[in-house]
Design a protein around this nucleic acid. Sequence first.
DNA 1: TTACGCGATGCAATCGATTACATATTGCCT
DNA 2: AGGCAATATGTAATCGATTGCATCGCGTAA
Lengths: 352, 352
Amino acid sequence: MADNTQVKNANGRGGDKPTTMADIARIAGVSTATVSRALANPAVVTAETREKIDRAVADADYRVNTLARNLRKMETRTILVIVPDIANPFFSDIFRGIEEVAHENGFVAVIGNTEVDPEREAAYANMARERRADGLLLLDGKLPAWASGASALGGVPFVMACEYVDGPDICLVRTDNYDAAKLAVAHLAELGHRRIAHIAGPLDRSISQDRMRGYHDGLAEAGLDDDPALIFEGDFGLDSGTAAIPTLMLGKPTAIFTSNDEMAMGAIQGLRAMGLGVPEDVSVVGFDDIRFAGAYNPPLTTVAQPRYEIGRLATEMLMQLLSGHELGQRQRVLNSSLVIRESSAPPAKAGG
Amino acid sequence: MADNTQVKNANGRGGDKPTTMADIARIAGVSTATVSRALANPAVVTAETREKIDRAVADADYRVNTLARNLRKMETRTILVIVPDIANPFFSDIFRGIEEVAHENGFVAVIGNTEVDPEREAAYANMARERRADGLLLLDGKLPAWASGASALGGVPFVMACEYVDGPDICLVRTDNYDAAKLAVAHLAELGHRRIAHIAGPLDRSISQDRMRGYHDGLAEAGLDDDPALIFEGDFGLDSGTAAIPTLMLGKPTAIFTSNDEMAMGAIQGLRAMGLGVPEDVSVVGFDDIRFAGAYNPPLTTVAQPRYEIGRLATEMLMQLLSGHELGQRQRVLNSSLVIRESSAPPAKAGG
DNA sequence: TTACGCGATGCAATCGATTACATATTGCCT
DNA sequence: AGGCAATATGTAATCGATTGCATCGCGTAA
C-alpha cells in the first residue's frame, strides 16, 4: 500500500532509468547514429544491422524520447486549436476533422478552451510562442490584439476557421454565412411569412454580423418589413434564445430565424412556455445543423455547414503553411445548405 | 505574394534565429544560469540583476523554449485524455473540468479521440510511453490489453473515469451507475408502470453493465416483470435508440429506461414515428442529463451525473500521482441524482 | 592493379534550458 | 581582525536524439 504509483518496466518512469537509444546501440553493437537512422529510415541500413537493432528495440521495449527529438528538430508536431467552447457540438465536430488530418500528418491536435476569457486566450497564444505547438488553428473569432496582418502570430503560423478578421494575408476557411442566412429568410418568406424575427449571436463576432446582414438583405429582397423590434442579440447560448422570446413576441412575428441551433431550441422552449407551438404558431429556423437538430421535436429546419470539411480543410492549409509550401488559395469559402425539417411551415393565417 | 508564411520578429520561426536564453544572458551581462534562476524564481537574484534581465527579456521579446526545458526536466506538463467520442456532450463537459484543473497546475490537457478504434487507442497509449505526456486520463472503458493491475501503464501513471476495469490498485473516479439506474426504474414503478423496457449501451462496457444490473434489480425490488423481450442493446448513438423501438414495442412496454440521453432522444423519435407520444403513451427516462436534455421536447427525465466534478476529481487524482504524493483514496464514487422533467408520467390506463 | 565511387557506419557537435557544484562577495559575530 | 555563514553568481555537465562530416570497405571500371 505504500508504493502507490508505479510499476517498473524497461521504459517505466518508476524504477530504473528508462532505455535510451544509447542502450539500444550498445546492445546491438552499433552507434546511436545507426540506430537513429535505422528507426527513421530502415532502408539505409543493412538488413543484418536492421535486424539486430529491431531485436534490441523489441527486447528492451524501447520507445523514442520525443522530448529529445523535439528539441533537436525544433518542432513539436503539435497544433493548438483555440476554441471558445468545446462543449458546443458545433466545435466538437469541426475538431474531429482537424484531428483526423493532423493524425494523417503525424501531428497531434491540442485543444485550448478559452471560454471567451481573454486571459486564457493569451495563455494559449503564448503556448505557441514557447514552442509547445508548431502552429495554431483559431476557431475563435475574438482574436484580441493578435490581429496582425499576416498568417503568423508572433512568428507562429496560423489558420482561422469560421470566425475571421480581415486581412488579405490571413489564411482562412469559412462558410458563406451571409448567403446562407439569406437562404433561410427566403425559405420563410416563400412559406408566406411576412414578419420574420431574428435572434442574432454576439454582434462583435464576424459570423453573427454576416448572418445578420444576410437576414436584412434577405428581408429586403423578399420585400418584407425590417422592423428593429424583431431583432434580439443573444449569446449563442440556449438560455438567450429563451430569453429573447417575451420581448420578440411583442412584435408579433410569425417566424424566427436564429443565428444558431442552440438558440433555436431555446426559443422553442420560450414559445412553449407562452403556449405557442412550433411550427403551428411560429416557425423557427436555426443555424449549424448540430447533431441534435434532426432529433429535436420538432426536427429543426436549419442551415447545415460542412463542419467536418471545415476542420479538414483548415488543417490541411495549416499543414501546408508548416511545411513551407506555397498555398494555392489563402481563403476558402465553403457552401452551406438549408435542411428543411419540421420546425418551419406556412403561417397559421395565410400571410398576404 | 511569394513570401506566404512568415513575419519576422525577435522570436519568429521565419527569419533569423530565435532569441535564446544565452542571448538574454549576453544582453543583461550575466550567465544563463542566472537568467534561468531569475525567470524561475525571481527572489533568488538581486533586484538589480532581475531588472536587467527583465528588461532584456522584454526588449528581445524572449520566450522560454519549452522543448529544451522539457528535455532537461524530463517532463512535458501535459496529460493525455483518451475519450471515445469528443463530440458527445457528456465527454465535453467532463473535459472542461479536466482542463481547468490541469491549467491550475500548469498542465496542458490533450485530447485523444479514439472513436473506439483499437488502432488509435494504441497510438495514444504510445504517445505517453514516448513521453509526449506525463500521465493519462482514460474516459474510455475498452482499455484493450492495457488492463495491467496498477495505476501505471507501461510506466505511465493513469486515472480512469466513468468506465473502469477491475483492480484494487487502479485509480478511478466514477458514479454510482447501479444505484442511479435503480433510482430511475423506481421512479417509473412509482408512477405506476409495470412493463418497463431498457435500451442498454454496449454491454462490453462497465457502465452499460452496471446500469443494466441496476435495471434488473430495480425491477425485482418493485416486484415487476423482467422480460427479456423488453431489453435492447444499443450503441449509445441516437440512431440505435430509434432502431430499438419497433422491436421493443412488440413487448408492449409503457415506459423505457435508456442508458443515455442520446438513445432516449432517438427512442422518442422512434415513438413519434409510430404515432406514439411521450409521455402520454410511453414514458422515457434517460441517463446523463446532457446539455440539451432539459431543452428537449418533452424535457427529458434523466439521471444527472456530476460531470464537471468527475473531470476535476480525476485530474486532481492524476496530479497527485504525478507529484508522487500518497493518495488518500484510489477510488471515488460520486452520487448521481434523478432529474424529473416531463418525459415521464403515469401510464395512460392506470397499470393495476 | 589502382583509383574512384558509393553504400554503410561511426564520431562528435548540436539543440536550449536546468542545476549541481564551485566560486566570489558581503556581512556579522566574537 | 579572523572566520564563518549566507547570498549571489558563474562554470560546465546534462537531458537523448539527430545529423554533417569523416571514415572504412568493397566493387567495378580503366
